[in-house]
Write a protein that binds this DNA or RNA. Structure first.
Lengths: 234, 234
DNA sequence: GCAAAAGTGTTTTGCTTACACCCATGA
DNA sequence: TCATGGGTGTAAGCAAAACACTTTTGC
């Protein structure tokens, strides 16, 4: 054939996000060998024969963090295959976004010793940081998460089984990097049909009135949407 | 290595959408050889060595339709790599969504003889239709287009350089498969900052008052958004 | 004049915002 | 009783939906 197809390995790279200390954090590993030895990178690994992409994502999530990808939110973001993006050769990367509740610490696992949570902020994303093109991948995954908070119940994936409205608000504030009015937020969230349902339980904060506990409802889309402030005009 | 990476060819498959006779249409080719010989399929082809995914998409678009991908809207949707999705072996497919103005007919090109526009409706998408997993790919690409009409000026990509508000409304109606109130639509569209700008010209329809012509503005996001009706509650 | 499409005005209803205010708890 | 976060009330402003109405063309 005059124009033979290129041949690729396909890697899955995971942007695993959580909220720690009210700040957005991403799980990174320190690369042990070249290329980019010693540099932080998104965890990931190669698709094996007979595996679908989602399977690889679940497996890598488990191997790198001990997290169970079948119970976590996990979604494909996009694919990167620019020539030269991986010095080792033709490697396409399929990026996945994963959302985890606040965890004690990266759990034991094959590669967990090299893993750590790192805070993410717009400042850090503006400067070169991660190995390969992982800065771009992280930025794209984060933008996906930011957008999906608006019209999907994704924010609940950052929370445990039950959560308070205040915790849910902390998720929105950390991911969007904005301050939201607690009073309006409360009304908005509880007014969206199927977003959260009260459990009847309460939880006492360190100080202050106990907050009602909620669990995730069955809505897959939010209506009305939780629109980001500032997306509008000046 | 105990778990060697799988090796893939990567294909680009294009969901090229346009509006013809006020109906949404997709460009399909008839497959000439097995697998799926004689079945309709999305146009596409393999990534070549040294090519980035976007480059392949632009090249294939040109080869199959004569369209210039550099002037058209073209965006990656997602990647499919389920084992067995291509009987020929390990082929991953990166789906692209392309939007074209109404064209006379698929233009001459390498494979253009096999290409044709086919109307798309929800009815047809419900039944098996295309080769490979292209039904799924088309459905995902279409949903992407439907969603982006809400918050981006994507609809203008279906129109020529200049267009009337009525033509723009026809785009929304065809893609969303709904009827929109012409009067409210007019006000909404012209009220969105940077969506459309008047050229000062007019165009006479077969019958009726001449409509003002507009061209695309410089907004990249719409505010307020053009929300789909019916997404809400009953 | 008539049909057809363009475009404006008006009213109702619902969501967002801003902010005052009350509630329940630990120290 | 005070600080702190939880939660409700209210009013202004904007946007969407529904629909009456006027404008401007071809025939």
């Amino acid at each position: 054939m005059r124009n033979p197809p290129a041949v690729f390995s396909i890697a899955i790279d995971l942007a695993i996000l959580t909220i720690r200390d009210d700040r957005l954090a991403v799980l990174l590993i320190e690369r042990g060998k070249p290329p980019f030895a010693g540099r932080p990178a998104l965890p990931g690994g190669f698709v094996r024969p007979g595996e679908d992409l989602d399977d690889t994502a679940v497996r890598e999530l488990s191997e790198e963090t001990g997290l169970d990808g079948r119970t976590l939110h996990l979604e494909q973001v996009r694919t990167y295959a620019a020539p030269g993006r991986d010095p080792r050769g033709a490697v396409a990367s399929v990026a996945y976004l994963a959302i985890a509740p606040d965890l004690p610490v990266p759990v034991a696992g094959t590669d967990a010793a090299r893993a750590r949570w790192e805070p993410v902020d717009d400042d850090r994303l503006g400067r070169p940081w991660l190995a390969f093109d992982h800065d771009t991948i992280l930025a794209d995954a984060l933008e996906r998460a930011r957008a999906k908070l608006e019209y999907s119940p994704l924010a609940t994936a950052f929370c445990g089984e039950t959560f308070t409205i205040g915790e849910l608000r902390a998720v929105y504030e950390a991911v969007w990097q904005v301050r939201l009015d607690p009073r309006n937020f409360h009304r908005k969230v509880t007014g969206v049909d199927g977003f959260v349902v009260p459990t009847g339980e309460r939880r006492s904060p360190p100080t202050g009135r106990p907050a009602a506990l909620y669990r995730r409802g069955d809505a897959s889309m939010l209506y009305p949407a939780m629109l980001r402030p500032g997306t509008g005009r000046p």
